[in-house]
Design a protein around this nucleic acid. Structure first.
Ligand SMILES: [Mn+2]
Ligand SMILES: [Mn+2]
Ligand SMILES: [Zn+2]
Ligand SMILES: [Zn+2]
Lengths: 143, 143
DNA sequence: TTCTCTTTTTAGAACTATTCTAAAATTAGA
DNA sequence: TCTAATTTTAGAATAGTTCTAAAAAGAGAA
């Protein structure tokens, strides 16, 4: 059984693999957005980080989230219920479900979604699918 | 063959049917967003209206677009490529196609889209589908 | 018509989310 | 160490939208 402190080095290595200097701020943001959060906004990052970096600048948070997106560690989404940009650590193609009660976003793997388009005038490169509704009693998240 | 000036009365009647007082500003906005434009932003409305109402307030434009949405004449959308809210005069369920060259939004009727979800934990009330890509040479719009 | 009350419009302030700026701090590495 | 490049920061700036409160317009009663 491996020691838990291995987690931290591997995060640093992940940043280095993507040519991102692993500064203290970036590691703290990465720990949250890549490992804890799934669909994080800058505000959520700031809220979570305030116990570790009470003076971190919002500019740093945005710089870092945008850098991670450019490097392929995150993917940006805008959802219809909020003006915030969401940064998704799932960079694979997948759909989303928005629970209209909690406003929570859940991942829906593409294997569970069947979508096709009868079409002759568009060349499709990407599809974004958002299901909206409510969680049933089971209420599980998948992804 | 009916006289063309019938178009204007019918717009006024449409507003009245939805309990919206047909003021001059609202009629001008309605003429654009309900008849000319398909996916209009406040900015597009302002740009189009400036020859008729060079001093119309942005507050009036937003008030009116939001009122029309509340009354069911328009439906609000946010798309991933822009921070603007788009007001769609097609209030029926349908999908969208975003041309990544022109940033233009096209309607895709649901009859052309086949979508289903293998799922046991969500109760789906609505689905938003956005196809992204480029127009082929034919490049027709449908809706 | 005029009076009165309500609704609508307006200019500009305020607000929210994000980006920019330029100076200070940190870092890498010669 | 020294130096140059990178990163972080606070605060200003920007973009899109909503709010405020006063002026204008409209509807209906008298
Ligand atoms: Mn917020
Ligand atoms: Mn704009
Ligand atoms: Zn996701
Ligand atoms: Zn549409």
């Amino acid at each position: 059984m491996k020691h838990l402190s291995l987690k931290s080095p591997s995060l640093k290595e992940k940043l280095l693999e993507h040519s991102i200097r692993p500064t203290a701020q970036r590691l703290a943001i990465a720990d949250f957005v890549l490992q804890k959060g799934r669909h994080s906004t800058a505000e959520m990052v700031q809220e979570h980080l305030k116990k570790f970096f009470p003076h971190i600048s919002l500019a740093t948070i945005y710089n870092t989230l945008n850098l991670f997106s450019k490097k392929g560690l995150l993917k940006e989404y805008r959802f219809p219920h909020s003006g915030h940009v969401f940064f998704d650590n799932n960079t694979q193609p997948h759909a989303h479900f928005l629970d209209e009660n909690s406003q929570e976003i859940y991942d829906v793997p593409m294997e569970k979604v069947n979508i096709s388009l009868k079409n002759d005038s568009f060349e499709i490169q990407d599809v974004e699918v958002l299901f909206k509704g409510t969680l049933t009693n089971k209420g599980g998240q998948s992804g």
